[in-house]
Design a protein around this nucleic acid. Structure first.
Length: 574
RNA sequence: CGGGACGUGGCGCAGUUUGGUAGCGCGCAGCGUUCGGGACGCUGAGGUCGUGGGUUCAAAUCCCGCCGUCCCGACCA
């Protein structure tokens, strides 16, 4: 491609209010343009990168036996009602009505549709299957942001494994795990996998692939001394033991005006230090009230509560909703004597005695609470949110929190969708069994943004060869010099014949502009050719990463640069 | 959805407080000089001031509604 004819609209000034670096750079360098909140045009450069990413994914999916297909994005709402996700997905699901008043939705993931397809399988002999597509997904995000990182319409590689049993699912899951590691490595992403919550997807086990970045929205917990790593929504930490002393009897005592953990602790330091208090929260999960019990100095991780309750939405109850339930306002709440509301208690409270909690009467508290003796806990589970500096459950090492971009997620789904849609096969014994499914996703444009987040410098983007829009830019310093231009054309042809993706910068611009643009756009290799070099029989080769320069004879420049391109093309080494 | 901000040639902005008929930089077109690290001169094109209504002799400017976008908090690839 000749730059003078290419649609590469670079900008001197970035969008002022853009936060993420990748957003600014992709806009400035002419890769993307925004149409509306969360809707982006992929300009020619952006589309080339997107196709490179799709190509890597396709190769790795095919390598594990994946079969590509394309499913519709427009789905009858009925299907989503049947799986229960029409309501579960809430407002994130785009809904519309056609001219016949039929309700439709735009697909935000496709477990339902693949499960329907899987009803065409009848025998365990046809399993396992790995099916995938690279296609558009729609999500009515409450708040699209950070350019390509969080949008309402995007391309997703979604794949699904179909197996006869859980052992098969485990194998399919492991294959995806390995494929994902290769995909991200080839894209030049330093991605790590962490334990994650399955959320609205359902299923038992899931792992997220994340890339460390300040632009990310996930919080990741890792141990500095071992391999423990988990999403904050899932992470646990070791709990320091507390000596509760001798068992005492339950006793009411007045606490006028004391409404917070801190205030109570200050007024009664000997019996009500924060770790001796029970924090009682009232939540509405899927609109049902529940009590949540935590140690006074611990905070709730909401996703853990949702996971434990099997719910999709939760929020703290408002004071006017709490009073009719417990008879008191926040500040004097407790779970002692409560039997008509489910009580979720954090495991840090297990076995604790002589605790202090609200008496469900304003300005009164209870002391001497023995959690297991006095409270009818419905569910004991891990509910507290890990904080920076907590200790690792595996080896006691220090835990660190950091922000990351989620670039992929793999789920062990189970039989929920196959049972719902009737995807059963007969096993060896002739018994009908629901197909065991796994579900695996990668967001392409988010992946592109993540590459930019972790591959840029003050001059612009630094694309890994594997996903670069062009591999080489041939910068002609004097377009008006016929000898130079003739040689440039010749080099351009030779690169093209070699199969190298080359962009010929034949614009009538000053050299400084061309150099700056090449660096902003981030093409891995720049071959600079001008009258001076032509006179000496050399071209200058500049590697974008580190801007390392070298003079190379004109007669070998194409072969040497091509070699470097070929060896870097497959990724891994970047 | 709650909180904050913004909307003026293609891009980035000033002008709004104190109404008087729109300006700057970049970019763009033509000509000339220049050109191995973001050149310069001259000439020129380009704007329903987001939108609807109101106040006024007069509205980018004041008032009301609506739409849109961004940022901060609850969701996900």
């Amino acid at each position: 491609m000749r730059w003078s004819q290419a649609f590469i609209p670079t900008l001197r000034e970035a969008p002022a209010d853009a936060e993420a670096v990748s957003h600014k750079l992709l806009v400035r360098a002419g890769f993307i343009r925004q149409l509306a909140a969360g809707s982006y045009t992929m300009l020619p450069l952006g589309q080339r990168v997107r196709l490179k990413v799709a190509g890597i994914i396709r190769e790795e999916m095919d390598a594990i036996g994946g079969q590509e297909m394309v499913l519709p994005t427009l789905h009858p709402a009925e299907i989503w009602r049947k799986s229960g996700r029409y309501d579960l997905m809430g407002d994130n699901l785009f809904r519309l009505v056609d001219r016949r008043d039929v309700e439709l939705v735009l697909g935000m993931t496709e477990e339902e549709i693949f499960a329907i397809l899987a009803t065409e399988l009848f025998s365990y002999r046809q399993l396992p299957q790995i099916w995938y597509q690279i296609h558009t997904k729609f999500r009515d995000e409450p708040r699209p942001k950070s350019g390509l990182l969080r949008v309402r319409e995007f391309t997703m590689k979604d794949s699904y494994t179909l197996d006869i049993d859980r052992a098969g699912l485990d194998r399919g899951f492991d294959k995806h795990y390995e494929a994902y590691r290769r995909i991200f490595a080839r894209m030049g992403l330093d991605a790590v996998d962490v334990e994650a919550s399955s959320g609205a997807m359902g299923g038992r086990e899931s792992r997220e692939f994340v890339v460390r970045s300040e632009a990310g929205e996930d919080w990741i917990v890792t141990c500095v001394t071992c391999d423990y790593r988990a999403n904050l929504e899932r992470a646990t930490s070791a709990i320091d033991p507390v000596d509760d002393g001798e068992t005492e009897d339950l006793e009411r005592f007045p606490t006028p005006g004391l409404r917070t953990i801190a205030a109570l602790a200050e007024a009664f330091p000997d019996i009500a230090s924060p770790e001796r208090q029970i924090k009682t929260l009232v939540y509405l999960v899927d609109e049902r009230p529940v009590l949540v019990l935590l140690r006074g100095d611990h905070d709730l991780q909401e996703q853990k509560l949702l996971d434990a309750a099997g719910a999709s939405e939760g929020r703290p109850a408002r004071p006017e909703e709490i009073r009719p339930l417990l008879g008191a306002d926040p500040g004097s709440l407790g779970a002692v004597g409560v039997t008509d509301i489910p009580i979720f208690a954090d495991i840090a409270l297990k076995g604790r005695r002589n605790m202090t909690t609200g008496a469900n009467e304003d300005d009164w508290h209870l002391r001497g609470v023995d959690v297991e003796r006095d409270i009818a806990v419905t569910t004991w589970t891990d509910l507290r949110e890990v904080v920076d500096g907590d200790l690792c459950v595996q080896d006691g090492g220090k835990l660190e929190l950091w922000k990351a971009i989620e670039v992929g997620h793999i789920f062990k789904l189970g039989t929920k969708y196959s049972e719902t849609f009737g995807a059963y096969v007969q096993d060896e014994a002739g018994e009908s069994r629901p197909i065991v499914m796994g579900s695996y996703g990668i967001g392409l444009e988010r992946g592109v943004a993540a590459v930019v987040e972790s591959n840029h410098d003050e001059k612009g983007i630094v694309w890994p060869v594997s996903v670069a829009p062009y591999e080489v830019v041939l910068t002609v310093v004097r377009v008006d010099d016929t000898a130079t231009m003739a040689i440039a054309n010749q080099l351009y042809e030779t690169f093209s014949q070699n199969g190298v993706e080359v962009l010929l910068d034949d614009r009538e611009e000053r050299p400084g502009v061309k150099f700056a643009d090449a660096e902003l756009v981030g093409i891995p290799f720049r071959v600079t050719i001008g009258p001076k070099g032509v006179a000496e029989g050399v071209a200058e080769v500049t590697e974008r990463r580190g801007l390392v320069r070298a003079e190379v004879p004109l007669d070998t420049v194409v072969s040497s640069v091509s070699e470097r391109v070929f060896s870097a093309r497959h990724g891994i080494s970047g």
